[in-house]
Computed example of a mutant assay.
Amino acid sequence: MRFTPTTLAGAVLIEPELREDARGHFARTFCEAEFAAAGLERRFPQQNHSYNHVAGTLRGMHFQHAPDTEVKVVRCTRGAIRDVIIDLRRDSSSYLQWEAFELTEENGRQLYVPKGFAHGYVTLTDQSAVSYLVSTPYAPAAEGGVRWNDPAFGIDWKMEVMQISEKDASWPDYRPHEWGLA
């Protein structure tokens, strides 16, 4: 695996190193020793999967409040997504900045999302699937989010949102004084 820092402090793009032969290819998507050598979280007690019927489906922007903040390692296993992260850590050099990445079935890229970040994505293709490792089990009482179109961030989703849950559409504007993020 190749680990490339992004412009947001602590976030990392992980690219597979393919081993190809006549059968196809093989690539490691997680290795505890390689994650440790890169200074990344390596305990993931939960793995999640989402399937999306149509392009333009938006999920996010989610995070968990302290003490249940979480690291995510996100990978698109079918189709393509535009994955977006926002740094909500007040003490970070990239506080309130966002960055987007195209994760596809073909490129095999994964995105390492540090604690204290909001995360979401919009699907670029019909019938897409996303899998992600999570460092902290889901804690309903710690669930939080920011609205996908909050003017505090000005995220460019690059496409029209066609599907979004009522909950994700109604997250509040960002209120840093009320939230205890890492």
Rank of each mutant, 00 (worst) to 15 (best):
Thr4Gln: 01
Gly10Asp: 00
Val12Thr: 11
Glu15Cys: 02
Glu15Trp: 06
Glu15Tyr: 07
Pro16Gln: 12
Glu17Leu: 14
Leu18Cys: 10
Asp21Lys: 08
Asp21Ser: 09
Arg23Asp: 03
Cys31Asp: 13
Glu32Lys: 15
Ala33Glu: 13
Glu41Met: 08
Glu41Gly: 04
His49Pro: 03
Ser50Ile: 05
Tyr51Pro: 01
His53Pro: 06
Val54Asn: 13
Ala55Arg: 12
Leu58Glu: 02
Arg59Lys: 00
Arg59Ala: 00
Arg59Asp: 01
Gly60Gln: 04
Phe63Ile: 10
Phe63Tyr: 09
Ala66Ser: 15
Glu70Asp: 08
Arg75Asn: 06
Arg75Asp: 05
Cys76Arg: 02
Arg78Glu: 06
Arg78Gln: 09
Gly79Asn: 01
Gly79Pro: 04
Ala80Thr: 04
Ala80Glu: 05
Ile81Phe: 03
Val84Trp: 06
Val84Phe: 09
Ile85Met: 09
Ile86Phe: 05
Asp87Phe: 07
Asp87Ile: 05
Leu88Ala: 12
Ser92Glu: 13
Ser92Met: 12
Ser93Asn: 14
Ser93Pro: 13
Gln97Arg: 14
Phe101Cys: 07
Glu106Cys: 14
Asn107Asp: 14
Arg109Leu: 12
Arg109Cys: 13
Gln110Leu: 08
Leu111Trp: 05
Tyr112Met: 06
Pro114Asp: 08
Gly116Val: 02
Gly116Met: 02
Phe117Asp: 01
Ala118Lys: 05
Gln127Ala: 07
Ser128Tyr: 01
Ser128Trp: 01
Val130Ala: 02
Tyr132Asn: 02
Val134Cys: 15
Ser135Leu: 09
Ser135Val: 06
Ala139Asn: 13
Ala139Ser: 13
Pro140Ser: 08
Pro140Arg: 07
Ala142Arg: 00
Val146Lys: 02
Asp150Ala: 05
Ala152Lys: 12
Ile155Ala: 00
Glu160Ala: 15
Met162Pro: 15
Ile164Glu: 12
Asp168Thr: 12
Ser170Leu: 10
Tyr174Gly: 14
Pro176Gln: 14
Glu178Ala: 11
Glu178Arg: 12
Gly180Asn: 11
Gly180Trp: 04
